[in-house]
Design a protein around this nucleic acid. Structure first.
Lengths: 245, 245
DNA sequence: GCATGTGAATGGATTCACAGCT
DNA sequence: AGCTGTGAATCCATTCACATGC
């Protein structure tokens, strides 16, 4: 959990990454009934829930539900009503008193707030099992995200294609690919031992956001947002609690 | 974030899953200088960091480093010194005043505390891109975890093998496989629309811990620990902050 | 001297409870 | 009557600062 390598202040340490360094800046655009807000002032916890809310709203929409109250929403998905309302209040007023929220409208608002109404171009680096799966993963190829490239350094892999048909290209061309194909986010799926070097590569190539799946805790220079997502950590914490029998 | 479907108390909502329901119980075993502790009283935040600490210690060990202070450890991996000491204090006294911590010894202690000195058997359900990648993922096949089975309901997939050679078996046999092969943890990589039904299957089969990778927020009955890991959420929160430019 | 371990202080996040609208 | 939006209260996690011990 960190941007920049310097130890961060007090916010609850979501053991993934930290906020970006630098001075807060106004960056929320008006959107419908949405209020202006400062993205960097939004806690990681709230941002993560926002994304979860969108997923839940999509499920409700698929069900054909039009309106929902914070109470019912909380009950169905395991949140707390006031927490939902507080989270939303950060960004504006989206509900109708005495009634609730319009499912589709709220989903549209949150999607826009998350910055998913524009397209983000990803480069997946590392074409092993995980890298290929991520490149083919529908969640990474929809809803605002596009796989712009899949890269590896292994000559035996370069030129081959994933099951879904994404071609593996040479990681040596990263900088060129990033600038020509307007890649904004790097997704790391390389071995732990090489991850730190690849981060430096990404930074030099001009990427400002990196999602790291390698099982090491990486840090990035200020100005680059890096998020560590260690899949094994999830299993281990599950095991920790399960060990109570 | 939840075990049981009932809305939970106050702890900081890591938007993944919630604690197990039920009454707290002593469940920490003595281990070396480790103190007895109540697993259920340990916050998800602390448990997650514990796992991260182990990963960091492994890196230090690989480097050949013997001892490290909380200060240096924090500097290298982006933690805060007192936080490390507080986290460790939950489980015992592992350091030497004036000196620091023995890397290997601390790693061994934490590994044991996390319950990783025994073997956990996993069943991956859903043999799509992600399910196959998870079944082949080295992180899920080492350090205390074993892939006991990979299951799917698609007849065309049953009997085929992943790149690493794991055979796909029929999900209809789940209950049998769980009991015969002593599976403890279910890993869901099925489409969102089917995830809830598969959770019920898992519960009926007797699984007590489930890691859900399907992009829906699921809940499980009390007594079953379920953790939602939505890969896309990570991308979306990264996009949210990156949208500030 | 130096770094751990820990009670006390701090600062956030969550929750409460009610005012305000429909 | 019902549900949102929100200041105030609560609860928890983090951080501080120092006593403790090598």
């Amino acid at each position: 959990v960190t941007t920049g390598s310097d130890p961060r202040r007090h916010p609850p340490q979501i053991p993934g990454q930290v906020r970006s360094a630098g001075i807060a800046r106004r960056s929320g655009r008006q959107a419908g009934r949405g209020a202006a807000f400062d993205r960097r002032a939004v806690s990681e916890l709230t941002a993560t829930r926002l994304s979860a809310y969108v997923r839940c709203l999509a499920a409700l929409e698929a069900e054909g539900l039009r309106r929902i109250s914070s109470k019912e929403f909380a009950r169905r998905f395991g949140f707390h009503p006031p927490q939902i309302r507080k989270d939303l209040a950060t960004f504006g007023e989206f509900g109708v008193r005495g009634v609730g929220y319009e499912v589709s409208e709220l989903k549209r608002h949150l999607t826009s707030i998350l910055g998913l109404d524009r397209t983000w171009r990803l480069a997946v680096i590392g074409a092993g099992h995980l890298g290929q799966a991520l490149a083919d993963y529908s969640g990474f190829r929809s809803g605002g995200f596009t796989i712009a490239a899949l890269l590896d350094k292994d000559a035996a892999k370069i030129g081959t294609k994933t099951r879904a048909g994404v071609e593996v290209r040479d990681v040596a061309d990263l900088a060129q690919i990033v600038s020509r194909e307007k890649v904004q986010i790097g997704v790391l799926a390389v071995p732990a031992a090489e991850a730190a070097a690849v981060v430096r590569l990404c930074v030099r190539a001009g990427l400002k956001a990196i999602l790291n799946f390698a099982p090491v805790r990486l840090t990035a220079p200020a100005g680059v947002r890096l998020k560590n997502v260690d899949l094994k950590v999830n299993l281990e914490t599950l095991a920790f609690y399960a060990a109570a029998e």
